[in-house]
Structure formats: C-alpha cells, structure tokens
Design a protein around this nucleic acid. Sequence first.
DNA 1: GATGAATGAGGGTTCATTCAT
DNA 2: CATGAATGAACCCTCATTCAT
Lengths: 201, 201, 201, 201
Amino acid sequence: MEKRVAILRCAKRLFAKKGYDATSMDEISKCADANKALIYYHFKNKENLYSKILLDSICSIHDSIRSQIDEIDDPENGLKIYIDAFYAQAVKDETFFRILMREIASDGSHLTGEVLGVFLKVLGMLEGIIKKGVDRGIFCEKDAKIVHFLIVGTISFYQCSKALRKKLVDDFQNKETLLKDMGNVSEQLYEIIVRGLKSDV
Amino acid sequence: MEKRVAILRCAKRLFAKKGYDATSMDEISKCADANKALIYYHFKNKENLYSKILLDSICSIHDSIRSQIDEIDDPENGLKIYIDAFYAQAVKDETFFRILMREIASDGSHLTGEVLGVFLKVLGMLEGIIKKGVDRGIFCEKDAKIVHFLIVGTISFYQCSKALRKKLVDDFQNKETLLKDMGNVSEQLYEIIVRGLKSDV
Amino acid sequence: MEKRVAILRCAKRLFAKKGYDATSMDEISKCADANKALIYYHFKNKENLYSKILLDSICSIHDSIRSQIDEIDDPENGLKIYIDAFYAQAVKDETFFRILMREIASDGSHLTGEVLGVFLKVLGMLEGIIKKGVDRGIFCEKDAKIVHFLIVGTISFYQCSKALRKKLVDDFQNKETLLKDMGNVSEQLYEIIVRGLKSDV
Amino acid sequence: MEKRVAILRCAKRLFAKKGYDATSMDEISKCADANKALIYYHFKNKENLYSKILLDSICSIHDSIRSQIDEIDDPENGLKIYIDAFYAQAVKDETFFRILMREIASDGSHLTGEVLGVFLKVLGMLEGIIKKGVDRGIFCEKDAKIVHFLIVGTISFYQCSKALRKKLVDDFQNKETLLKDMGNVSEQLYEIIVRGLKSDV
DNA sequence: GATGAATGAGGGTTCATTCAT
DNA sequence: CATGAATGAACCCTCATTCAT
C-alpha cells in the first residue's frame, strides 16, 4: 500500500511538471522506486492513473469548499470562501493547477466523466452562491462557469508563472524591474469578482 | 516555399490543440501534405519548429501593440491598447494562447532565449505604460510581469475554456445553467486592471 | 537470459563482418530472433552493446594470457605465450580482430575507458615480460605498445586478409600465383619479434 | 573543377577518419563547401566517389613503386624499394591505410574490380621481385600476397595506431611506460621480411 | 557547373503494455 | 504484492538520391 501512495505522489508531480505525454511510465516507476508492472497492477493503465490523480485533487478541493460553505448564508461571504479555498490550495500545492491549465489548453481531452461530475458539483456550489445573490438582488445574473474560470485562471497564472517570472529576472538582468507583488491576491481577486458580479453589463 | 508555410500553419494548429509532446512529426507532415524529411530540411528539428512558431506568434503580437502604442501618450489609453491587442489576437487566433498556457504550466521549458527576448520587449512596453502612469501620479507601482500575466491569464482562460464550457453544458444537460456571457470582456478586464493599478495595496 | 546471449553472439558476428555503422539494430534483432526493444532492455543502446562485446572479448584474451603467463619466469618464453595467445584467439575466432582493425583505423573512437583499462592490463603483462628481459640483459628497451601493435597487426592482417587473398585468386584467375602459406605463423612472428627486441636499434 | 578536387580531398579525409558508413554525403558537402547535388553531378553516387578515391590512392602508390623499380635488377634492392614506397606513403598520408584496414576487416566489401586490378598490378611487381630472387637462389618460394599483407599490415598498424598509443599515455598517466620508438621502421621491416624470405620454413 | 527543394527508406530509440513467475 | 523479460507500435531524425531550375 505504501508503493501505491508513492506512485500516486510521484506521478502527480511528474504530470504537473511535464504534462501527460512527456511523462513516461518508466519515469514514474523509477521515481517511485516501484516496478513498472506494479503501476499497472494498481492502476490498470496510464490514463487511469492520471484520472485517479485528477479525481483525488478535485475531490480534495470540493471537500474543502463544501465543509466551509455549508454554514454560510451570505452570498458575498460564500464567494470569498470559494476564492480562498482555491487560492489556499494553489499556494499549498500548485501541481493541480498546472495540470488544469494543460487540460484547459486541450479542451479537457483527458477529463473523464467522473472528474467532470465532481467538477460540476464544485461549479454547482458557485452557482448556488450566485443564485442566492441574484435572489437577494445583490448580484446580476452571470454564468457561473465564466466566473469560475476567471477565478481559477487568475490564480493559476499568478501562482504558476512565479518560476517563469523569476527566470525572466535572472536570465535577462531585468533587475531594474519593479518587483512589487500584488499584496493579498485572494482579497483583491474577491473584490474584482464581486464588482463584476454587481455590475450590470 | 509554399510547403514551408503549410508546415508552419499545420504545426501551429496541432501544437496548440494537443501540446508539444502529443504532436508527432508524422502528423504534421501528413496534415501539411509534406514529406516528413522536408520538415527537417526546413526547420532542423521539432524543437526548432516549435520555437519558430512561438517566435512568429509573439512577434506578431509585439508588432501589433508597437504600431498602435507609439502615438499614444495617455497611460490609461496605453493600457487599453495593450489589453485590446491581446484580446483581439485571442479572438482571432487562440492557438498561441493555448501554447502559452502549457508553457506557463511547464515553467517555459520550451521557451528559447530568442522568444524570451521578444517577450521581454512586449513586457517593456507595459512597463513603460505603467511607469508613465506612476510618474503622473495616476498609477501605483506594480510589477509589470504580474499585471501582464493577469491580463493574459484571464484572456487565455476565458477564450480557451469556451469549448470546455460548452462541453459541460452539452454532456451534462446542464441546460438550466445561465449562459449569460461576460459582455465586453476586454472593456471589463481593462476596468479591473485600472482599478488594481490605482489601488495602493 | 537465453536471448541476451543470442543477441551478444549475433551482434558480435555482425559488428565484425560489417562494422559498427553498417550494422543495424534491426539486423541484430532479426538475427538473434529477439524483439528490437529487448536489445535496449538488456543493453541500453547500441554503443553499450558494442562496448560490452569488446569488453568480453578483450577480457577473454586477458584471462587466457594471464592464466598461462603466471607460472613462467623466462622472458623469451613469456613472449612466446603472449604471441601464441593472440594467434590462437585469431584462429579460433577472428571477429575480435576485425573489430580491432576498425578501431585502430578510427583511433579507437568507440573504445570506452573500461575497455582501454583492460587493454592496458594486457599491455602491462607484455611490459612486464620486456622489463624482465631488459633486467636480465636479454632484451633492449622498447615500447611495449609498439611491440604489441606489431604482433597484433601482423596477426590481424594475416588472418583477416585470408578471404580477400582467396578472392584475388578466384576473381582474377590468378592461379599461377604461388599459394605457399607462411607455415607456422606464430613461430615465425615470435622469432621476428625476439630478434627485434634483441637488436639495439 | 576546383570544387571537384575539394570534394575528393574532403571525402578522402572523412572516409579515412570515420569509415564509409559513418560518413554522410551531407558531411562531405559541408566540409567541401559544395552543394550536395554537385557531388552526384561529379561522382554519380557515394560508392563511386569512394571507389574513385581508392583508385586514385592505389594508383599513386603503384606509380611511385613502378617508377622506382624499373631500373632495379637486384631483388633485395627491389624489396627495399617496395617497402620504402609504402612506408613513405604512410608517413606522408596515412588516410589510405586507414581505409585499407577497414576494407581488410570487411573482406574488401567496397573494392571494385578496377581497384582490385590495380592492386594486382602492385602485387605483380612484388611477385616479380620474389620470383627473381627465387630464380637466383636467394629467396624461397613464398606467396606474394602474404608477404604484401605483412608489410602493409605492419606499416598500417604502426602508423595508424600512433594516435591511439598517444591516447593511452595521456588518458591513463601511463607515463612510466618507455616510449622508445622502433627507430627506422622501414629498415627493420625490410630486414625482417628478407630474413623470412630467405628462411625455408 | 551549381543549387534549393523534395522524397522514401531506414536508422536508433522509447513507449505503454503484457505475462509468467 | 511484486518482478524481470518480452513485445509491437510509434517516435524523432538522417540517409542517399533526384529533379527542376
């Protein structure tokens, strides 16, 4: 059972770092110090292993939001929690967001129905929040999917581009560039989104 | 010379759709109706072909912004042009943004110095805009790289997730979901960014 | 494990017959009735396979000389054993000598440090023999490497040119040519070398 | 016409250094700064180019010997000239000998009838020398081909192994090794061969 | 003479996967 | 649970060669 976990952990890291196609089963097996055939014993095949990782990740996010949001009634508060949950996850472990970016770029070519199902449940919570806001006359009607992708897109790019931004500074002596960061990203993002949801465009 | 262009066009489409690793030279050659060896004759190898595509794309964006921004003095106006240029490009041809998302996810593993150089020139223009705003007391000091990635991140996710959003609606009879879009995305994004640049966080 | 041996045997024969570059992995795999990927499983790559073969061959010669030479004290006798060992090997299996000739012709472009190491150990034995001869006033000081290459060069050309010599006779009705061979080659070579080592040139 | 010569010269050097199969037409064209198609215009194909080089080389040697040997009557003197001609050639330009070693190793797989014809003429001169010696009771009957290959084999190994011998010294701090060379190689080789031809083995 | 573009065949190598043990 | 051996398909790339200009 130990090996199973090691495989999952290594695979996740590698998939995040290099993408699905650039990650070989050989690499995973070496990284996890597990025989290659053992991966097939535990996960049937590569697609399955990848899906399992995606499912675990999104379930973890789902549960995190779910547990916090239930006791909340205020829609603005709910939105804050939604954003915070994603941001906290991105700061703690950005691997999932790297994988997600590639999936968006590929129109979700590797997303199984199961993963999409959980994803919809997450979206459903955001929809609930927005609907409540609309019912109370606080928010205008907006497509939850768009709101979601703006939140996740901003967080993903902000967090995942850190290494690249640093590289730019290092490689090109771009030292004179101001490196002032954005302060409390989650907070600002919340304000931006709330403003967007309030504006009747 | 005709074949060379066909190769570039097909390769760009395929790289955008499936990513660098999932795109085979065989596929490109068949799509472009060109002998596989001809690709190597023109582009030396896969990495080189990929870089050439990236370089062409980013140069095209650079030139587009450059040509518009020179005659502008007002920093807010400059920012608008910057955002519009990217958004217009994304609407016209989102392939580059798909490729970009994957590069961010991989910390730019395939980005050559040449590409990064042009990228820095683009960033330089945004830096100039922000600096002018700061000098005139309109903007607060912010790192241009972060501002840039927020712009591009939002545009990328918004534009590239369209297919996935549609898929969610289709596959899951998620019909009751409101499909109201965001209206003028470029306009809204501009307002959000300006607000962020004005706030002294 | 059976397949591994078959691959080694076939590869050696093909490398000897056609040279490193003219021998394809496909050819080896077909000859050994082994899947091509299996060669890579066992030997990592072509260079490695080639090196392994070279190493095996030279180790075999080394061991053969080593086991005979230890109990010998007389330097002239030692020299005889050294020459005999090579000649016997060439008569029994000339493949190694064909490979060696090509390596000499390429300045040992495919020789790894490991192979060179064993080769030096072989040379060391000849050096020991010569040194003993010098100490006892029988031999003059000569570079063991030159003596070695003369021995091996003569044996290689004599043994490996047999087919070509026959071809000349067959193709050109060169029948009137005397076909008297050299008699006991090893014996004659020994006498020549000893004479050379004794002469103070 | 200039390019033709450049191609020949570069091809010869490359064939000698790396062998027939490891030398590509691309490489030759780049080295000679000639368009690849031009090589085909001048030499029809790779085999032909290679043969032309071999033919030129062996003709040059043949002519060198021929011009010296005609006025000689004494067989021992003739033998000396024969050996000297090869040795001088090897010292001046060892490329041909490297090519020859590989051909021997491959049983002359690339040798055309034309090349073999000239080669036989060279051999014929040696045969004449030996025959004269036999007629005068100085030499015993020996196969000229064997005598020839011993001469050429020794010279080839001695001359072509120089780089490898140096490498052994450099790479392995084999410094304590005596580096005394063989003195006048041609002279010694002559004595050895004469002795062999005189001995009635 | 000389060239750039083009091609089909084959090169070495890696892949995801299976199976007997 | 775990492993070493084995496989067929596919991958990137290079080859010798041709042809129109």
